[in-house]
Amino acid sequence: MGMPNPDKLKKVEAEEYDTLVQQLKPKPAIFKNCVWAFTVGGLICVIAQLITNYLLVSGMSGTDASAFTSVIMIFLAAFFTGIGIYDELGKRAGAGSIVPITGFANAIVASAMEFKREGYIFGVGARIFTVAGPTLVFGFAVSVLIGLIKVFITS
């Protein structure tokens, strides 16, 4: 048959198909999602700010108040994940409930809860880091790199 190159033809076919898919696939409701993300994300930060302000007024230092606020927010996220509310919020709020540290806590707690039935060591213990692991790996790697650059500059 007069087909020039079957691989090339397949590629063209796949590209044509992708064009059709992109035409017919409904797009996410970006505006609505953004309003939800902005509002929920903003409100989570307002709650954190209220806690920080309270701690500052009761005489805690700035750094300690900030760290303590994070711990309280993580506790709240763990609690609302445990009682099955945080994932419902996440369906609407999207990045609004993923980006704050509560989203980080939710990912850790949800993984831990989910794999409870596979036991506490290889279930909870191992899977707790499914999402937290990559986040910490990259966080640590970047901070060490920054430290090394700092050492290099100061010496």
């Binding site: 369906k91 939710n106 949800a110």
Partner: peptide, 10 residues
């Protein structure tokens, strides 16, 4: 995990 807050697409 079922309790993780993820957003479905259409």
């Amino acid at each position: 995990p079922t309790e993780q807050g993820t957003q479905p697409t259409p």
